[in-house]
Nucleic acid binder design. Sequence first.
RNA 1: GGAGAGGUUCCCGAGUGGUCAAAGGGAACAGACUGUAAAUCUGUCGUCAGUCGACUUCGGAGGUUCAAAUCCUCCCCUCUCCA
Length: 400
Amino acid sequence: MRFEKEIKLIKRAVDEIVPLEGLIDKLEKSEKTGKPLRIKLGIDPTGYDLHLGHLVPIRKMRDFQDLGHQGVIIIGDFTAQIGDPTGRDETRPPLTHEQIMYNSERYMEQLYTILIPEQTEVRYQTEWFGGMTLHDVLQLLSKFTLAQFMAHDTFRNRYEQGLSLGMHELMYPVLQSYDSVAVESDVELGATEQKFNILCGRDMQRYFGQEQQVAVLSPILTGTDGVNKMGKSLNNYIAVFDTPNDKYGKVMSIPDSLIINYYNYAAFALEDEIKAIEAELKQGVNPMLIKKRLAHRIVSYYHSDAEADEAAEAFDRQFSQREVPEEMPEYALASGEYRLTNILVDSGLCKTQGEAKRLIQGGGVSVDGERIETWDHVLNFEADTIIRAGKRRYLKLVKA
RNA sequence: GGAGAGGUUCCCGAGUGGUCAAAGGGAACAGACUGUAAAUCUGUCGUCAGUCGACUUCGGAGGUUCAAAUCCUCCCCUCUCCA
């Protein structure tokens, strides 16, 4: 097959390419004309805290860039006002313009840790949607039928389950598909759940007499809980902004059954590597050790080798050897007597008195290594004291 | 516009006048165990209260009652069928 090497790279951590033939044609054309392909990825600036799940398609864009192609990031400042209904069973609240601008800037900051800036074009939907009239909008809408949309899982499920579904949400795929026309995309990236939207883009391009884009669909990354899709609302995500220690720890917290999955989609390991790891697991190597390597690799990708080393050491100290971490937040107090629960709450370790009390009663709090079992414990504070609340929360009391 | 169903604690979901701070599940947190922040088991899971008790919560606002998530009135929102 022609472009075997390229296709292999493109297929890495990808679920589906629709249609594969189309991609080969595109590569061929690009090689002939010397014009890079335009690789589109739409982003809704509904938030700015990116996690590893978001980055799967982003890293795919980077693969294309490494092959010399042009990334085109579309900031969905219009679609963000709708909220992508895909995979959602609820209408999203719309965002203000300021939020959108702020989010998209933070977004790009993070993306440039992966993408090559010189090969990245950033476009806002406002460019083409800002000046549209109702007439134009109606024209776009006429390209699709209700039946077509109701065949789409998300819409059908929402409808059949009797959940609310706003008219504006039906607009989402329409807008996204016109983006492809506006930027003349050759390839559109996205998670598999984007298949419908991206394929709509192909239709739209055809209506506008353009060559049709190819969909390159990335798998959806499972969250650290091992069950649900990685997402903010479930608190099962590893964020780009997480500290090296947190990233490391969060990787360690994934169920062992997720190791291969993460090597594939979070660490972007190559095929041979995956095979080697599978073999190791089969031979009975402690999954913990393999997870440690995985965690190290992920941390060093986003930070550095040195930081990954440190995170690994900190993890061993804190969890394997149960030692106190080197760094922890400090809380200043004057000498005197304090009720322990008050310290826990005032310092922010616990949210409420009740929570602090329960934590103590559950045996989760210790002062200088000694477990405290009485909720009304009074602490006589003089010099440095270390309070531990639960597995991960530490506090050093220092003199005010 | 007409007829019906429904809005419960972080989520799902029971609960139709007192025994309800509200079953059950999930999530989360903690403990035990494990050289994993895995798995498993156990506990906790509205706020305040040195723990008797007080206060706030069941879409919103009023009302009935000694007593309401549960009854009444109006309003808001969602869904279904009909137009």
